[in-house]
Design a protein around this nucleic acid. Sequence first.
DNA 1: CTGAAAGCGCTTACAG
DNA 2: CTGAAAGCGCTTACAG
Lengths: 336, 336
Amino acid sequence: MKKVLSIADIARKLNISITSVSFILNGKAEEKRISPELAKRVLKLVNDVGYVPNQLAKSLRTGKTNIIGLIVEDISNPFFANVARLIEENANDRGYKIFYCSSENNTIKTQELIKVFRERQVDGYIITPAAGIEKDIVSLLNNQAKVVLFDRYLPSINTSYVIVDNMGGSYKAMTHLIQQGFKNIGIVTLKSDQTQMQKRLEGYTLAMEEHGLKLCIKKIKFHDSTENIIDEIKDFISKNIKLDAIFFATNYLGVAGLEAIKQLNISITSDLGVLSFDDHDLFRLYSPSISVLAQPIEEMSENLINILLDHLDEEKESVKQIMLSPKLILRESTQR
Amino acid sequence: MKKVLSIADIARKLNISITSVSFILNGKAEEKRISPELAKRVLKLVNDVGYVPNQLAKSLRTGKTNIIGLIVEDISNPFFANVARLIEENANDRGYKIFYCSSENNTIKTQELIKVFRERQVDGYIITPAAGIEKDIVSLLNNQAKVVLFDRYLPSINTSYVIVDNMGGSYKAMTHLIQQGFKNIGIVTLKSDQTQMQKRLEGYTLAMEEHGLKLCIKKIKFHDSTENIIDEIKDFISKNIKLDAIFFATNYLGVAGLEAIKQLNISITSDLGVLSFDDHDLFRLYSPSISVLAQPIEEMSENLINILLDHLDEEKESVKQIMLSPKLILRESTQR
DNA sequence: CTGAAAGCGCTTACAG
DNA sequence: CTGAAAGCGCTTACAG
C-alpha cells in the first residue's frame, strides 16, 4: 500500500520546515518572503510525487469545508435535477462543492440529512423543506448556520428563501383558460399543506370564484405509486364528465394525467384543455403540445447560490426572500 | 455565536474523561465496561445540549469518511438522474453518503473532480469515465483507491465496471426492425470513441450487414446545442428520403429526433419507424408510443454499490466486470 | 472500570 | 526569511 504523502513528508524530503511548505502550497510564498527558488523546488516535488492535500485536515483546522449541503425533494424529478445541475455549476465556479441528497419530502429523512450535513460541517444549506421540519431549521439558525430554502418556505420561520409566485402564476394560468372559453376547470393537486401546493390551489380558486365558476378539486396522496395516481385521475375525469379543462399542479401529476387521458381515449383540446405546472420534455413534444407554467430554473439557481454565498460572507443576519414569476407558456393544449 | 460543543466539553461538564465519552458515543460502553449509569448520563447530556460529532475530525483520525464520490455525465439527464437516485438510496441504507458531480463528459472537468474527491478522502469512486481519463484512473488504482466505472469502460485498463450489452441490445433492436419489414434503417449517434457509443453502432452495423442492408449513419457532435441537434437530424432525414426507420443511440438524441420529426411533419410508423436507446417518460407517452432499449437502472445501481462496497471490505484486488442486458420494449413506433 | 496522551494532517501566531 | 509548536476534534493503545 503506497503511503499517502503529507506536508511533513514533503518538508522532510527537502529538509525544510512544514511551515514553509504550507505557505508555498497556499500561494503565500511571496507574502511570507520565501525565496522563489525554494518555492519552485517545493512545487516541483509536490507535482512529481503527486502530493494531494488532505482537505479534511485543512477543514478541521480552518473550520471551513467549502461544501454546501443541498437537500432536494427528489433528484430524479426533472425540475429538481435541473435546479441541482445549475446550482452545482454555479457553486463550482465559486469554489464550492455540493453535497447533496433527496429527502423524498419525508420529515424523518430530512432530519437525518440535516444531521449528516452538520456532522460533516457543511458551510451552508440549501433545502426544500419537508412538512414538519420547522424545529430542525430553527435549530440550524440558532447555531448560526447559513440556510436558504427553496420551492416552498416555512411561514412560521423568518429565513431566506427563493420561491416562485405560485398563487399569481396559477391565477394567470386559470384566467387564460377562462378567457379561452373553458368553464368547468378541474385541478389535480396533492394532499399537502406545503406552501407551494397551497398557493397553487389558491390561485386556481381565486380565478374560478372571480368568474363565478364552480370548483372541481382532486387531491392525490403524496407518495402514491404512478399506477395509483393514474387510476385516481382516470376516476376523477370519469366522475366529472362536464370537465372541459384540467390544471395539473405539478409536473409528475401532469405526466400521469396525460397517461390517464390517453388511456381514457379522450382528445386533448377538443374534449379537454390541459395545463400543467412545471415544464417537461414531454409537455413540449406531446401532440398536442401542453401549455405550462414553467419555473425560471436558471434564475432560481443563481439566486439560491448568490444568497447563500452572501450569507457566508457577511456577519450580519440579513434575510433575503425572493419570489420569482413562473412563465406561462401557451401551447396547443389550451387553444380553443 | 453559540460555540459548537466538542467531546472535551461534554467530558468536562460531567467531570469524566474524554475517552469514556468517546467510547459511550461509539456504542462501546459495554465492551469497555463503562457503567450503564454513566453511559446514560452522557447520552442524556449529549441529547440535551444537541451535541453533534465532528465527522471531519473522526474521518481524519480513522482514515474513513464513509463518502462515495460519484461522477456522472450529466445529472439533468434522466438516465443519470435515476441511477444517481438509486445509488444514493442504496448507499444510504448501507451507511454511505454520496458526493456527487456532473462531468459533462469533459476530461478536464473529470480530472478536477477526481482531484477534489481525493482531497476529500472519499472511500470509493463510481465514475462514468470521460474520454482520455485513463491516466487519472490508473493513478487512482495505483493509490489503492476503490473504483467502479459505469455506462462505459476503458478497454486499456483492468477495472471493475457495470455496463449494459450495448452491442447485443442494438443488434436485437435492429433485428426487430428488420423483421418488421423496415429496410432503410438509419442510426443517429454521437461522434464518440467511447465504448458505449461504439458498441451501439457495431450492433446496428452487424445486424444491417447480416441482412445485406445499406448503412446510413449520422454522427452528431457531442456538445451541440439542442437546436443544432434538431437541425442536424432534420437535415439527415431530408437528405435520406428513402429512410424508413431511425435508431437513436441515446435518450436525448431520441428526444431531439422526435422534435425534428414533428417539425418535418413526418408521421411516425407509417412514414418512419423509430426506436431509441434509453427509456423516457416522453417515449412511453408519445403518440405513437416509442419503442426503446431500456437500461436496467435498478440492477445497475445495485451492482455498482455492491461491487464498490465489496472492494471497500476486501484487501485483495478482485476486479468485477458486469454486463447487463438492456430490455427491448416494443411500442407503437416500430409496428408495421 | 477510567484517564492521560499521542497522533491523524493541516494552519498560523509567535519567535528569532 | 525560516522553524518549532500549539491546536482543530476526534480515536485508541497503553497504563493503572
